[in-house]
């Protein structure tokens, strides 16, 4: 097992290199460059200022040289400076990461704690009214555009009822709040975004759980458990669910990069200061260092996420052994 993990860890750096090279090439292949995006068609900026900026950022050099420079810095964990405002990429990420983490982690917890029971119940009572109703509901959620639902909720709860704040993470005058006040305030601001994320995100987990639960409860060992005279609750939650969770672990592993990736549309609607907006602006502005920086972290987390779920398999399922 230990050998296996080490082997897998050694595979991560070459994969990171390959993927980052492809990412940089892809960015350079699309038409446009940071200098034109920043100063293009501004009647007060001369063409020489644009050329000068390219030189300053080394954009006049061949792509492979640029990649080499980036690689040399990244091994010392130096992500470079943003082309937009010359601030260190890592600082820009740090600023936005907490907002995204708070939202995504609480959404993940909420989704799991609602979707798992829904999945289990609808599998146990397959084709019942509950099954059909929840199936309908989660698919409605899945098909609802986030921004549309968000605007409806804001309008109803924020404008008409005036119960909840419309957008943002904290009011600007919160600087004088005490810590408990701040936490309460944050929860207050989290209600609408969380509800929106959870409602539109229930489908995946609940359907996976239902499906895999249906498989498991038809297995012989469940019949055996029943034959032994075990209580139904114990059969479902102890024997069946444990086994049914295996595929769900895979999904959990894959959500790791999404935790820091955020979502652009969502953050734009709720004026949430997260990573999605950072990445989107960076892509639009051809801010290579930021795109590469966020990208490499996401790729790293994806690879780690897969590794972790592979390890978790072995922990959860005694039949799986890695050599």
């Amino acid at each position: 097992m230990f050998k296996y993990i080490v082997k897998r860890l050694f595979l991560i750096p070459p994969m990171l290199m390959g993927i980052s090279l492809i990412a940089l090439l892809a960015m350079h292949l699309t038409p446009g460059d940071p200098a034109s995006m920043r100063y293009g068609l501004n009647p007060e900026v001369s063409g020489s200022a644009r050329a000068h900026l390219k030189e300053l950022y080394g954009l006049d050099k061949p792509v492979i040289v640029q990649y080499g420079g980036w690689l040399k810095r990244i091994v010392t964990l130096d992500f470079g400076d943003s082309f937009i405002d010359d601030r260190p990429v890592i600082e820009k990420i740090k600023e936005r990461l907490p907002a995204t983490l708070i939202l995504q982690i609480s959404a993940l917890i909420l989704i799991f704690s609602i979707a798992l029971p829904i999945g289990v119940m609808s599998a146990v009572k397959q084709n019942s009214f509950f099954d059909k109703a929840t199936t309908f509901l989660v698919f409605v959620g899945f098909a609802t555009p986030t921004f549309w639902l968000a605007l409806l909720l804001m309008r109803f709860f924020g404008f008409q009822l005036e119960w909840l704040p419309i957008s943002g993470m904290s009011p600007w005058y919160a600087q004088d709040y005490s810590l408990p006040h701040r936490i309460l305030d944050l929860l207050w601001h989290l209600i609408l975004p969380l509800f929106t994320l959870a409602f539109t995100g229930l489908a995946g987990i609940s359907r996976y759980t239902r499906y895999s639960m249906l498989e498991v409860i038809r297995q012989d060992y469940i019949r055996t458990a029943r034959a032994k005279g075990l209580k139904e609750n114990k059969i479902i939650y102890h024997h069946a669910l444990k086994n049914a969770l295996l595929p769900v672990i895979t999904i959990l592993g894959l959500t790791l990069p999404a935790l820091i990736g955020g979502s652009f549309i969502f953050e734009t609607i709720f004026a949430w200061p997260g990573m999605g907006r950072l990445m989107y602006t960076a892509i639009l502005q051809y801010d290579y260092p930021v795109v590469m920086g966020v990208g490499i972290i996401s790729v790293f987390l994806t690879l780690t996420g897969i590794l972790i779920s592979d390890i978790l398999y072995a922990v959860v399922d005694p039949r799986i052994r890695y050599e």
């Binding site: 419309i166 957008s167 004026a271």
Partner: peptide, 19 residues
């Protein structure tokens, strides 16, 4: 104070609710 609200529809909701 300058508040960053990237969506114009949301900005409008903030305006009429006093945000």
């Amino acid at each position: 104070v300058e508040r960053v609200i990237p969506n114009q529809a949301v900005q409008f909701l903030e305006l009429i609710t006093g945000g």
